[in-house]
Design a protein around this nucleic acid. Structure first.
Length: 232
DNA sequence: AAGCAGATCAACCGCTATCGT
DNA sequence: TACGATAGCGGTTGATCTGCT
């Protein structure tokens, strides 16, 4: 009999999302919250499969996402976590607030992997003793970040209190409180602060009109802040 | 300016894990 | 316990961008 496809193959749109589709999805999730992705496209009026909607939301539309390249501290953390956890991107992402598994995976494959290879380190097998070296590569001019996971001589040592904390369940429990809000009001507040200055998609949507989301989401004061930023 | 190659990243696919009945 | 439905994960693809010739 076989497995049922996650969605009807006919009439389901694929490829890049349009601003209009984003709007519908955001609108729907702000109104109804995240529930049963399979029904989301139908209820939201989208010709997409639920899987695609979930991916779009978690990887791009979520208001708590940081955009842009990983900074050095985050990169070091990824290298260290990857050395411990392997290609378990979702586990790694769970320990980097505002970053998605897809983003980290892409960054690993396009940036970090190359840098490690350039250093003569096999990205698939970073020995403990050179993990610290790898993790601190190109960081001779440190970015003064508060995240310094590899300060101990052996980064795999659980003696490193910060890494122990990050790898612990306590960290995940704590970080759960960073989850994006579910109400429109909170989304507006939270979204504005996190989007400010680092969300091109937001600026694009904003260009479509102040009432783009149909939620009265952005007040004039908020928008004036954005207008003053170096919008491209 | 045109063509090409490499880099980047959003999105898809197929599989597994989990949950409810 | 078995089975189906759904969510989530990791690998891969392909469109687009960027830099070089």
């Amino acid at each position: 009999m076989g497995r049922q496809p996650c969605c009807d193959k006919f009439g389901v749109k694929k490829g890049p999302w349009t601003a209009e589709e984003d709007k519908k999805l955001v609108n729907f999730i702000l109104t109804h919250g995240q529930c049963c992705w399979r029904t989301v496209p139908k209820l939201a009026g989208l010709r997409r499969c639920g899987k695609s909607c979930r991916l779009r939301w978690t990887n791009y539309l979520r208001p708590d996402l940081k955009r842009g390249l990983l900074n050095e501290a985050e990169e070091r953390l990824v290298i260290d976590l990857h050395a411990r956890l392997g290609n378990r991107w979702s586990k790694i992402a769970a320990r980097l607030p505002g970053r998605t598994d897809n983003e980290i995976k892409n960054h690993w494959n396009t940036h970090i992997k190359k840098k490690l290879i350039k250093m003569g380190i096999d990205p698939h097998d970073i020995p403990n003793n050179i993990c610290a070296q790898a993790a601190s590569f190109s960081s001779s001019s440190s970015d003064n970040s508060s995240i310094t996971p590899t300060e101990s001589s052996d980064p795999h040592s659980d003696d490193d209190p910060l890494m122990s904390y990050i790898l612990s369940d306590t960290f995940l429990e704590d970080s759960s409180t960073w989850n994006f809000p579910v109400t429109r009001e909170e989304y507006c507040e939270f979204g504005m602060s996190s989007l400010e200055g680092n969300s091109p998609w937001f600026l694009e949507l904003k260009d479509l009109g102040d009432d783009y989301f149909g939620l009265g989401r952005f007040n004039d004061a908020d928008l004036s802040v954005l207008d003053m930023s170096d919008k491209h």
